[in-house]
């Protein structure tokens, strides 16, 4: 593997003292391609992802990225680190009463000063880039529509555009397809894979659907009970692994 972009060491998270959700995760993410994390609900996949950009405070361990320990950052330094990490959410998390354009531009909020955001005087380069991204995600005509007028698949496309608007060095995607129908799910994954591939942005994606994970990821991490139990390329994962990750085997 080439030089990793993200290196997690001994990451522990306890929401209640003495009840760890993550039991000392060690993980290095390469600078290319999609890494899929699979595992049953409540196993700490989402917590792991949120520890990386500190939406959740890690209890112990280090998260190294670009020579900084993300777990130790505070204030302005933390915000500067966050803006280099894009995130796509399961429920899209768009600001529903703002227009599609404004939602995409919220990806620049780590860069622009308050007055510009307030008066909507974004730099010309940002506007051009936002339009280019809207074209790229296939929503060129929707810039001035309100976000709550869109369908689920369209909203997730806006979510992806917003995350890429940050010009991120790393993209986190937390169950990006779980709220979508199967066909839209594939389309959204395809879009995300293509755009991040073109931009050369590595992706960590939490995903329920093993087939989707195998189809798009270069590497699959299997988690269960807050521990990593599988780590390898998609074709290495077999039914025995799946039954270890999810428990039981009748469903396979």
């Amino acid at each position: 593997m080439t030089q990793p972009i993200l290196e997690i060491r001994g990451l522990v998270k306890e929401y209640q003292p003495g009840k760890p959700v993550l039991h000392g995760i060690d993980l290095a993410i390469g600078a290319q391609g999609i890494t899929a994390i699979i595992g049953p609900s409540g196993t700490g996949k989402s917590t792991l992802l949120r520890c990386v950009n500190r939406l959740v405070e890690p209890t112990k361990g280090s998260i190294m990225m670009g020579g900084q320990d993300l777990a130790r950052l505070r204030g302005g330094a933390l915000r500067a680190a966050r803006r280099r990490i894009g995130m796509v959410f399961q429920e899209y998390n768009l600001v529903e009463r703002l227009s599609v354009m404004e939602n995409v531009l919220t990806g620049r909020l780590g860069y622009v000063p308050l007055w510009r955001a307030w008066l909507r005087r974004y730099p010309r380069a940002d506007l051009d880039r936002a339009f280019a991204l809207l074209d790229a995600v296939g929503l060129p005509e929707h810039a001035t529509r309100r976000a709550d007028a869109l369908s689920g698949g369209q909203r997730q496309r806006v979510g992806i555009a917003r995350a890429l608007m940050q010009s991120p060095a790393l993209l986190l995607a937390d169950e990006p397809t779980s709220s979508l129908d199967p066909r839209t799910a594939v389309e959204v994954m395809e879009l995300m894979a293509r755009l991040t591939g073109e931009a050369g942005v590595p992706v960590i994606v939490n995903i329920h659907n093993v087939e989707l994970a195998k189809r798009f990821a270069v590497r699959i991490i299997g988690m269960t009970g807050g521990r990593i139990v599988f780590d390898g390329p998609p074709d290495a994962i077999g039914n025995d692994h799946l039954s270890e990750i999810y428990g039981g085997e009748d469903w396979i």
Partner: peptide
Amino acid sequence: GPVEALTATGAS
């Protein structure tokens, strides 16, 4: 949710 998303972009 939306506030979380903005936090993730590094907004103050």
